[in-house]
Amino acid sequence: MTEQTTPSAPPKMAARHVNVFYGDKQAIRDVSIEIDNDHVIAFIGPSGCGKSTFLRTLNRMNDTVAGARVEGDITLDGENIYDPSMDVVQLRARVGMVFQKPNPFPKSIYDNIAYGPRIHGLANSKADLDVIVESALRRAGLWDEVKDRLKDSGTALSGGQQQRLCIGRAIAVEPEVILMDEPCSALDPIATAKIEELIHELRGRYAIAIVTHNMQQAARVSQRTAFFHLGTLVEYGVTSEIFTNPREDRTKDYITGRYG
């Protein structure tokens, strides 16, 4: 794997020699990478290359898959997230996930946002909860569109609004890392542009990693890009350099459309 640069700040998350298996099949091979607060990192590569599988290791979503096994070290602020003492519920509050298909709860807009803070005891009163809900919806760029209909069902929103609601739901529990698995693939260009703008606004407040099949999107939203192929991390570096001057032939072939 070619690495063009390493972020200078201590990483928020670090993966070292990570391997992922589904039963006897190895899906990820010896991946090492760092994620920090200052840069959005995009994971790109052909379908089935392991980018989403790797993303899911970062908050132990693969724990829910029968036969899945993760080897190597993944740390959050230097703490091994696969240590038996790690509280997985708490981990997933600290490392939030936004999925490819918007998945609001069949609850009101308000209750979608309030759900996590209630579970984690982040609000002592209804007034506290109101503040958290408004703040999360503002940060998700949704407040002005829904402030007069917070009692309406979250599932009644448009697809783009639902995805921003899901981002707001992740934000509401004050995560440190936000993982996004192709968050715009089901959205139209206008909704996609709003999500991309939101990612720009959230950068620096959270460490953000995004899986995308859209290379133009990776170029627009990220400062670091990791190219995966056949379960390996082929190349990782500054996004502009990856796209204009890749060091690996496989990266160049993918970016120029020779395969994918």
Rank of each mutant, 00 (worst) to 15 (best):
S135W: 01
H120M: 11
K107T: 00
I119N: 12
V146T: 06
W143R: 09
M97D: 09
S158Q: 05
V131H: 11
A114H: 01
E145Y: 01
L150K: 13
P175D: 09
L129W: 06
P175I: 06
C166Y: 07
I178D: 02
S153R: 14
V88L: 12
G160W: 00
T155P: 00
N112I: 10
R139T: 07
G96D: 02
Y115Q: 13
G141Q: 12
V89E: 12
S108L: 10
V173Y: 02
D148M: 13
L165D: 02
I113R: 04
V95M: 10
A123T: 09
L122R: 07
H120S: 09
C166I: 11
E134F: 03
N124K: 15
A93C: 14
Q162V: 09
M86N: 02
H120W: 05
L122A: 07
D111C: 07
G168P: 04
K151G: 13
I113P: 01
L150E: 10
V95N: 07
V131Q: 14
M86A: 09
K101H: 06
V88S: 02
D144E: 15
L142H: 08
R138K: 15
V173K: 15
Q90W: 08
S108V: 04
V146R: 03
D130Q: 13
V173S: 14
Q162A: 10
A136G: 03
G116D: 09
G154Q: 07
L91E: 03
L157Q: 05
M86I: 08
